[in-house]
Amino acid sequence: MLPKGKLPVVVIACQVLEEMLDRLLPEHGRSVSQVTFMDYGLHRVPSKMAGTLQEALGKVEEPSLIVLGYGLCGNGLMGLKAGKHTLLVPRTDDCIALLLGSYKAYRHEFATVPGTYYLSKGWLEAGSHPLSEYEEYLPKYGPKEAMWIMDMQYQNYERLMLVTHTPADLVEYRPAAQQVARFCERWEMRYEERVGSDAYVRQLVEAAMALSQGEELSQAARRDFIVIPPGSEIHQDQFIR
């Protein structure tokens, strides 16, 4: 059962959504009581994600509607307990759907070329991409060995895709993305660009506002979002569409 009445809204999200949420949340003024952005690197060790997020949840004192700006993230969210809070989570495997603008858009891209490596403004700024990975291995292993490690991981990828939310960002981040693309040419990965949309994240914020006011989610919203009532926890099967 969802709690009756109004709940304060708290956002706990991955840094990759920071720019979008920073822009979208103020539209709802004071209704959001707290926003925390978590480190990009959290998804690299999914087994430690739930623990770290549980800790962040534990710091929220008042029973709240907690918006989680995450996907299932390699089962990283599995086992996260709502406790006294209500949780709202996008029903998606990972953040790519949130960057592209919808789950459908992600499915389309995945079905077209499953072996796609995605780049976003956030990932480029955080240095999370194959080129920076190579540069990280270089001093430790030397050029030949570092490249072998890269080959072993990426040789079957086919496409590198830069996803931004505005055409202006595309222009701004293109040089950095193309630098990564040139590096990835050794695996014959082709470079593509998409102007994604903030629609999915916008719907997330709207769903949060509705729930916090004690309103029900629309049928469409129930397809795209998971609501975890107090006392329950997140399971993997909730993410299966």
Partner: peptide, 19 residues
């Protein structure tokens, strides 16, 4: 694989799951 669980393995009749 990333989203796979023991419960899913049981459900589809696999003999085992590894994380």
């Amino acid at each position: 694989g990333a989203p796979v669980t023991q419960a899913f393995a049981d459900q589809i009749g696999a003999d085992g799951y590894a994380s």
